[in-house]
Amino acid sequence: MATDVMIEARDLTKIYGTQRAVDKLNFEIRRGEIVGFLGPNGAGKSTTMKILTCFIAPTEGTAKIGGHDVFNDPLAVRSVLGYLPQRAALYPEMGVVEYLEFAAELRAIPKSERRERIKKVVKICGLEEALRKEIGQLSYGYRQRVGLAQALIHDPPILILDEPTADLDPNESAEVIEYIKAIGKTRTVMLSTHDLSEVKASCARVLIVNRGKIVADGAPDELAAKSGRVRYVIGIDEKQGLKGAKAPESVGEVLKALEGVVKGGTAKELTSDDKAHVVEVTAAGGDDHRREFFQLAVDKGWNLLELRREALQLEEVFRQLTVGADAKSADKSESKKSTAKE
């Protein structure tokens, strides 16, 4: 039975000195999935990827890539893997084609097929214009594409990409994401990032790690929905009231009034111009409070310029999980073993 699990981590742990960079990580990534590996800086994303690509060894636990154990057969693991490390470090003095030839040679692609393979990855990664250049002359975006091309040269079934869009401008970033989506149609891809819009654009599934642990696993929308909270964005005219009524004097007044509408809701000001107080209220997702907000505005004589209700964004889920969990786990570890530190 050929396994469907392409990337598997079991109790993966990496300890640097006294710090647990990766702490009993467990996950499976199946054939054909594009999975976003999310987390704040220092959460253990890169460390995990370095273990999966056999650059470093786990302190405890096991990992398998395509069924091959990273500890027992690193060569087999690397042979089925395309890896783009963070900031794709390439030899700056080499030409683009020269570098890809080097990569193809190390991948033992027969000489007769090398040209064809290089042509193919050049096309996939949009490198045609950079072919004659040295890597050192390329922009970050193009370097990243060369890194991607290198990872694809042997047509691997599994790709691990560590922050493929870091340091790129929005256009380059969008392009690289397009390439990854195209590549991911026939492959298993695990990509790390802290850019959530990218994840929404390309990944069907998200793993969120924090402090070396998985704190969430699921489809981006699902995760957002699961948090069970919604937000309302409400804009009140700052200059003019309703039919001669007065506009609210300060944003504080607005915040207070709006918070009073929803039980357990929290309100905060969003950035806005000097025409309107734009306020966000987050609340439990069960009921729809839009009517009440409208009524409030009418009662107060405020001009309602904007009112919408939406599910909590992935960004906020991310923040809740990582910042919240941060505080929680810090509390826990402190109370658990306050003597262990120092």
Binding site: T3, P74, A76, R107
Partner: peptide
């Protein structure tokens, strides 16, 4: 890590990709 041991692929593993001979790899890097 026993890189030299060409372990038998475990059951259910996907076929390993091509890898160069030690001599070829060494010379490519050299």
């Amino acid at each position: 890590m026993s890189e030299t041991a060409e372990a038998v692929a475990p059951a259910g593993a996907i076929p390993r990709g091509s890898t160069g001979t030690p001599f070829n790899n060494t010379m490519t890097i050299a």
